[in-house]
Amino acid sequence: MKILVPVKRVVDYNVKVRLKADGSGVDTANVKMSMNPFDEIAVEEALRIKEAGNAEEVIAVSIGVQQCQETLRTALAMGADRAILVKTDAAIEPLAVAKILAKITADVGADLVILGKQAIDDDSNQTGQMLAALLGRPQGTFASELNLADGKIAVTREVDGGLETLSLSLPAVVTADLRLNEPRYASLPNIMKAKRKPMEQLAAEDYGVDLTPRHNVILVSEPAAREAGVKVANVAELVAKLKSVGAI
């Protein structure tokens, strides 16, 4: 079995984003970029499935600017076997990403696609579900545990009320939640080795997918700021304050 893991290059989760003055978006110039944290978890899970003898190959794919190859090198250093960079300088939405991924999934013959459940930049939480729908495959989103057996995959999912387990027939699409695993750090020898692993470069236009955004972004603005509060000296003062404003 082959596993495809799409990875996205995003502003590092520790960075407090700054907005461009003209309201056109988030300033990403000279900002630390990293692999979307949920995608790291997806890579890790794919590697664990391979290491358990349930998959032969883990293929990482990223769609975006040339620098996405750094994100792919991270996936290769973690242990992915090869990588595909689908290059585009355009801002590309989940629907177009899912369409390209559907073609790549078929091209490489992946029986399992594991994605992060959402990217921490646009917070859309759509790509995995869209991919599953376009491929007509069952999906297990927000996964916190996977078990492969007899051509099926049991997916434990984090849902609003707690946990839920589904059984999916393969091929399938899974999206990773936070507690699926703890991603490994790439060791220095593996980072060196990753430089020699194959990375195919393609252009998004080659897939015949309409990349035109469906959402016209008019403005990206600061959220309403909270006014600075006060420090209270002790619990008694806290309770008095809360009572005075009718909060308790």
Binding site: L95, N125, Q126, L134, T141, R157
Partner: peptide, 20 residues
Amino acid sequence: TTAKNFMPCVAALLDVMQIS
């Protein structure tokens, strides 16, 4: 979590972007 699970699927099959 229920809607986040299936709504993007509907969007994809209708060839539209979800507004999340």
